[in-house]
Design a protein around this nucleic acid. Structure first.
Lengths: 334, 334
DNA sequence: TTGTAGGCGTTATCAT
DNA sequence: ATGATAACGCCTACAA
């Protein structure tokens, strides 16, 4: 049997109201009784029941985090930042692994609603009409992380993907490369897929570099294997390639790996620039030049925004974080 | 204003008891009223309040997960497995990032208690007397993941670290290596530190191979940098080294990285075997031979055990998972 | 089949 | 400064 505020009250010969006051630092008790009560609490090892509290306060001090893929280091960084701020605000985070599955996502949304979570962080996936309608109807504060909604005014935190991709490609060009290929993620992905391809295209055009379809391979995802398959395909259809822009660090590592197998030297014969700046990037051989997103800070900012909405019920402003090229050793300067 | 069971009852012209019965599939209602009620629920977009439910059922359908480090891929795999099973059981997981900080850990423990979580998974860190006493007193079901308690009978899921380390070293020896060095994690770490060193020592002795202090470097942690620093130190004090056993994959990558910088060829001049089999291992150059732990399954099993305790209130048996050498290309067969 | 009422552990509003 | 008591949203005997 777990002990409640009643037990404390009884043993301390006071009413539960008094105990409650002491617990919540509300005026209306003497130092003396406080001392007595605190002692009893200590003796009994009493801990208030947050559930009962939540029933009244209508706050669960919990926020929900929806992520498509748990196994990516990207998410790890996000989650890490989210957890920091959440804890700092005396709350905790429930993490939900959607696997990019619409049905599962809706299930989670309902679960979170039933759990009475105070807010939601929705990461790295398009906010569909369904999701949006649900969240809106339930009046749950939400902010998007590394994604956006095209049709609705939902606050977000992200990097300008197209611009970042432009910068990456531009960096390659500025370093003397002309035959630049790109390995993108999923073209259908309106958030991280197409925009990065567009940024690449934009840079190529700007510098009057030819860019045929053969120079772009867009696979199914952003993983190592996608990089492996992608580069095999790329080098076959565009053998003149001298530099590649990979839409993720994992893809970039896949490229490096294939290059190594084929005896192509990086960066002497092939330059590579990645995207994300995961810890992987420093660990690769050669260390990977890549465009960095401030992952952890983004997670933190998004979380701060959620709490801002929760606490002040004010609308918050979206935020685009700056990206930056992190120069390491995978790009040859011609 | 959020709608409650009362609103549903009123609009459907029934009592809240009836609505509750329908919601929980308890006998005592006609098909007809069910239809009516369900329709009203639909119209109103009603969702039961899990908090209120929890107050009665004394179950929060939430479990707490304590991990020391969020940014490691090890944890990612664990968490992934945990989340799977948790969701499968209609619950969710609150993840707590302790940073190996005792005070923070105790705070989290109390937070979790107040949240009335149903159980705890405690990962990759020694269960101190404090933690144990708290959990015991609060009668919270707990299972340890990739760690153990020396002094108390707390169920755990892990791999036999010493044995695994023995296997790794043995593998090196069987492939003809004699001058084998080791780069361990933290020696103070009674769970993942010393046992792996012991396993290494055991294998060396068994095969009558000399093993001086110079052959072992034990750093502060299990990260990439520890591998970098560790190997620099190792090769200085033990230049004859021809193979190294790294206590983690990240350490191994650090070693490879330094070797590359120094122009030492892997595996031609230096063989390396890692520990963990993270996805990193396949991505390295050359692909890393390592001893694999079934991370995700371990997370899943630990979670199943927690639910076993919660649901059946039975004591569960600890489980040691088998490890396995995953042969890739970082060890030269002499 | 259905409704009434008490209780889960707190907090908040009254009195005293 | 303190104590009774009504909520909070739901479940569950017990009645009807």
């Amino acid at each position: 049997m777990t002990i409640t505020i009643k037990d404390v009250a009884k043993k301390a010969n006071v009413s539960i109201a008094t105990v409650s006051r002491i617990l919540n630092d509300k005026p209306g008790y003497s130092e003396e009784t406080k001392k007595k009560v605190m002692q009893v609490i200590e003796e009994l090892g009493y801990h208030p029941n947050g559930i009962a509290r939540g029933l009244i306060s209508k706050r669960s001090h919990t926020i929900g985090v929806l992520v498509p893929k748990l196994s990516s280091m990207l998410m790890t960084e996000f989650v890490s930042g989210i957890e920091n701020i959440t804890h700092q605000n005396g709350s905790s985070a429930i993490i939900c692994h959607t696997e990019s599955n619409g049905k599962k996502t809706m299930q989670y949304l309902q679960l979170l609603k039933e759990k009475q979570i105070d807010g939601i962080i929705f990461a790295s996936e398009l906010l569909t009409e369904d999701y949006y309608q649900f969240v809106k109807k339930m009046e749950i504060p939400i902010v998007l992380l590394s994604t956006i909604s095209y049709d609705h005014p939902v606050p977000y935190v992200r990097v300008d993907d197209q611009h970042a991709a432009y910068s990456a490609t531009d960096y390659l060009i500025k370093n003397g490369h002309k035959n630049i290929g790109m390995i993108g993620g999923n073209k259908e992905d309106m958030v991280a897929g197409q925009p990065r391809i567009d940024g690449y295209l934009q840079a190529m055009e700007k510098h009057n570099l030819s860019c045929t379809d053969k120079q772009i391979v867009s696979g199914h995802g952003f993983g190592f294997e996608d990089g492996v398959d992608g580069f095999r395909k790329l080098i076959e259809q565009f053998p003149e390639v001298t530099a590649v822009f990979a839409a993720s660090d994992e893809i970039a590592l896949g490229v490096i790996s294939v290059a190594y197998q084929m005896g192509i030297k990086v960066p002497e014969q092939l330059s590579i620039i990645g995207y994300d700046n995961l810890s992987l990037a420093e660990m690769s051989i050669p260390p990977l030049t890549t465009v960095a997103q401030p992952l952890k800070q983004m997670g933190e900012k998004a979380t701060e925004m959620v709490f801002d909405i929760i606490n002040n019920n004010k609308t918050v402003e979206s935020r685009i974080f700056p990206h930056a090229i992190v120069e390491r050793d995978s790009v040859r300067k011609i």
